[in-house]
């Protein structure tokens, strides 16, 4: 019965080459020397488990869903992303010189982004900005090199959320998850038929065979108890014991609006298609509690913004910018060399 701290799997970023093409175009034709922030739209998908055909029977490979931005990110948000995909709003700030990029006050930028999420929760009680992100870039157009750094601000919960490590996270296909195959199919149907994409949702068990999926904004702390309601979210993590990053802000959101909350049942939705058999669902559930149970939990101070973390680590695992080198795919000289 020892509670352990819930660790969230960071959301990796993925920039489609067309994103850089579009940014180049924008830089040359529209932004020019301006380094104002530009609104963009990204999406992230559910984490997936892939069967490894060569790895022997039953070997699985986890592929984490990533926040991806592409050419269309600069336009309107994808009106109806496929099920298992969640839209995320963000801003991109492109610097003119590498020196400016280096000297940028990243703490300030990050705090501004976090403040924006915080105020949107406080004022609108909407979840639409919870998964917003920040991207700073420097484009070396002549060399087809793009330096970039993503940040996914997430609020730190004090005390931290814990999960009982004997119960832990369990697959929804297992018998004690509380969900049946039909109920899960029903959740899937309701998610895919929802007129607007539900990145965060409530799954209410109305009766033994009826399930209702509603936006998380309708959460009611007195009726939505862990026994009757699960808090669901599109989970980009593929790790069994780590829910994805977007859950952090969802938990913060629920605590701010319902300061007395201490326990929540979480449904990590990881199914992009209906499972072919009852034991093939990939989603996971777990019940989280605030604190480790040794000391009583203070009600949350909802007036000051909690600390936030979320700069993406680079390839070396350090906090630092990444580099996309598109020269091999864009430089006409290099392309001519490999052409037949």
């Amino acid at each position: 019965m020892a509670p352990t701290i819930v660790q969230f799997a960071p959301l990796p970023s993925q920039t489609h080459p067309s994103f850089w093409h579009k940014l180049t175009e924008l830089k040359l034709d529209v932004l020019k020397l301006s380094d104002a922030e530009v609104e963009i739209n990204g999406t992230y998908g559910v984490g997936r488990l892939i069967k490894d055909r060569e790895g022997g029977p039953g070997a699985y490979v986890g592929v984490t869903g990533s926040l991806s931005v592409e050419e269309e990110s600069f336009g309107q948000a994808h009106a109806n992303p496929a099920i298992g995909n969640a839209p995320a709003k963000g801003t991109v700030k492109n610097y003119n010189t590498i020196e400016e990029f280096k000297a940028a006050d990243k703490t300030k930028l990050f705090n501004e982004a976090a403040d924006k999420i915080w105020t949107s929760v406080q004022t609108t009680r909407s979840t639409s900005l919870l998964n917003s992100f920040l991207l700073i870039t420097f484009a070396d157009l002549k060399k087809y090199k793009y330096f970039y750094w993503f940040a996914f601000p997430a609020f730190v919960s004090t005390p931290a959320w814990h999960i009982d490590d004997t119960a832990g996270w369990i697959g929804v296909s297992s018998p004690n998850s509380g969900y049946t195959h039909d109920q899960l199919t029903s959740i899937y149907d309701q998610l895919s038929k929802s007129p607007k994409p539900l990145s965060y949702f409530l799954v209410r068990s109305l009766s033994s065979d009826s399930i209702q999926v509603v936006p998380v904004e309708e959460f009611n702390a007195t009726t939505d108890t862990p026994t009757s309601t699960s808090i669901g979210f599109i989970d980009p993590s593929a790790q069994a014991q780590n829910p994805g990053w977007p859950l952090r802000n969802l938990l913060a959101y629920l605590r701010v609006l319902h300061p007395s909350l201490t326990s929540l049942k979480i449904l990590c939705w990881r199914d992009a298609e209906v499972a072919r058999s009852a034991d093939d669902w990939k989603s996971r559930v777990g019940t989280l509690t605030l604190g480790d149970g040794t000391s009583p939990v203070e009600p949350m101070d909802t007036t000051t913004r909690p600390n936030a973390v979320g700069w993406e680590k680079n390839v070396q695992g350090k906090l630092g910018p990444r580099l996309a080198d598109l020269a091999p795919m864009m430089d006409p000289v290099r392309l001519a060399n490999q052409a037949v």
Binding site: I5, V6, Q7, F8, A9, P10, L49, D52, G55, P57, G58, A59, Y60, V61, G62, V156, S157, A160, W161, W169, G171, S174, Q239, A240, Q241, N242, R248, V309, K313, G317
Partner: peptide
């Protein structure tokens, strides 16, 4: 403390999918 450390290890065994070292 609530950020999961990056995992670099690899193929998940069938037996581990449920037990899940993640």
């Amino acid at each position: 403390e609530a950020t999961a450390a990056p995992k670099t290890s690899n193929v998940i065994d069938a037996s581990q999918v449920e037990v899940a070292s993640g």
